[in-house]
């Protein structure tokens, strides 16, 4: 039985990466060549990151990453390509994510309200909370 392979993110073909010439191409050239980045560096858009991942999923097991590629294109102040870097599977690391999350509020329905709350609400066709008034 064939496991299915999924391609996630923006998988840039390697030949196109070789075409990029630092010192010549500007940001708009890069967008023409390999599209806009998956994510830019956090506080400035100096580095563009093209992140992609190939996963193989069998049955209910967690999708197993069989290939990961990060293409980094860095620009200088004038917006011209200063460097292109390619990182593969070797840079992948298992990270234990912190489970704590920032608390938020918001009205969450109690069990009974959920169970019976909407029996009448939907069937009577009354809109649940439509913004009223002529706006």
């Amino acid at each position: 039985c064939s496991q299915n392979v999924d391609v996630r993110g923006n998988e840039v073909e390697l030949e196109t990466v070789e075409v990029i010439r630092p010192g010549v191409h500007t940001r708009s050239d890069i967008v023409q060549l390999i599209g806009s980045p998956t994510v830019m560096s956090t506080f400035n858009d100096k580095n563009w990151y093209y992140i992609s991942r190939r996963t193989q999923t069998t049955a209910f097991f967690k999708p197993e990453t069989i290939e990961q590629q990060v293409v980094t294109v860095s620009f200088d102040e004038q917006g011209v390509v200063s460097d292109v870097a390619l990182a593969g599977m070797e840079s992948k690391q298992e990270v234990a994510h912190v489970s704590r999350t920032t608390p938020t509020s918001g009205h969450s329905l109690t069990l009974l309200e959920q169970l019976f709350g909407n029996l009448g609400r939907f069937n009577s066709g009354k809109p649940v909370y439509q913004a009223p008034g002529g706006r």
Binding site: V31, G35, S36, L115, F116, N118, L119, R121, F122, N123, V128
Partner: peptide
């Protein structure tokens, strides 16, 4: 936000899933 980017908007309208 860019020419080669698209935003997918999934608009759902809920129905009563409770059965008595």
């Amino acid at each position: 936000s860019a020419a080669d980017k698209v935003v997918l908007k999934a608009k759902v309208e809920e129905q009563s899933t409770g059965e008595l």
